[in-house]
Amino acid sequence: MNNGAPRFAADLAHLPTSAHGPRATTWWGTLGFILIEATGFALAAAAYFYLMGQTETWPPGQSPPDWLWGTLQLVLMLASLWPNWWTDRVAHADDLRKVRIGLVVMSAVGLLTLVVRAFEFGALNCRWDDNAYGSMVWVLLGLHAVHLITDVGDTLVLTVLMFTKHVEPRRFTDVTDNCVYWNFVVAAWVPLWALLYVVPRLV
């Protein structure tokens, strides 16, 4: 209903056009999707415990998954937190050269986790169609694998972008959001690892 001349209260031309962290929309968007996926993990884990509570023996008739690959994955992921943190830091500083290094390292780490994940599936000591336990184990590991694949894919695309002519301030924001997401993927693996590898040995 601005019939007359508008009443200008302030001029915002001085504001920056990109930002990192909670000042940017993508950070909140990433957080939103992390919440959704964390809920999915939590519910799948709840289903695991629920089915465990319905059965006398757990795992029913199989041995628990072999330690080796899952634990290697855990070590690898925890170790990756450091280059991930470093990449995040240099992206905040808009340092293109270091961001390139960080992304290459993170891409390599990501691909390595995928290889380890493939071996993990082979060492579960059950099939998804054996019984409810097998189904649950495969789905939990598969759900996490989907997150790994998406994040590694995202990292690879970002790496390519950073080596082509697409570099602009907003790409650094994308890198920091990708780092946030990797932290989530690792954070999700710790309890899942315990669920898949430790819990069956405790009960």
């Binding site: 629920y50 059965t55 169609d129 054996d130 189904s135």
Partner: peptide, 26 residues
């Protein structure tokens, strides 16, 4: 509901047993 409908479709298509009481499901 995404988790449960995915479990349902896996039970139906690839032979998982989330809801099959005969194989430890519920």
């Amino acid at each position: 509901v995404m988790v449960s409908s995915s479990m349902l479709i896996m039970d139906r298509l690839i032979g998982t047993h989330f809801f099959n009481p005969a194989e430890g499901g519920d």
